[in-house]
Amino acid sequence: MVEVGIIGGTGYTAGELIRLMIHHPKVNIRNIVSRSSPGTYLHLIHSDLLGDVNNIKFSNEIKNDELDIIFLCSGHGRSKKELFNISDKIKVIDLSQDFRMIENSTFKKRNFIYGLPELQKNIIRQSDNIANPGCFATSIILSILPLAKNNLLKKNIHISAITGSTGSGKEHSETSHFSWRNNNISAYKIFTHQHLCEIEQIINKVQNNFVSKIYFVPYRGNFTRGIISTTYTETDISLEDNNTIYKKYYNDHPFVHISDINVDVKQVVNTNKCILYITKEKNKLIIISIIDNLIKGASGQAIQNMNLMFNIEETCGLILKSIRF
Rank of each mutant, 00 (worst) to 15 (best):
P146Y: 15
P146Q: 15
L147V: 04
L147C: 12
L147E: 09
A148T: 15
A148H: 13
K149A: 12
K149L: 14
N150K: 15
N151G: 11
L152F: 06
L153P: 15
L153C: 13
K154F: 13
K155E: 13
N156I: 11
N156G: 07
I157Q: 11
H158L: 13
H158K: 12
I159W: 11
S160E: 11
S160G: 06
S160H: 11
S160Y: 11
S160K: 10
I162T: 02
T163K: 04
T163H: 00
T166N: 04
T166F: 06
G167H: 05
S168V: 02
S168G: 08
G169R: 01
G169E: 01
E171L: 07
E171I: 05
E171H: 04
H172D: 01
S173Y: 07
S173W: 08
S173V: 04
S173R: 03
S173N: 03
S176K: 06
F178I: 13
F178M: 12
F178Q: 09
W180L: 00
W180I: 01
W180M: 00
W180N: 00
R181F: 02
R181S: 05
N182W: 05
N183I: 07
N183E: 02
N184Y: 09
I185H: 07
A187G: 13
A187W: 11
A187R: 13
I190E: 07
I190G: 10
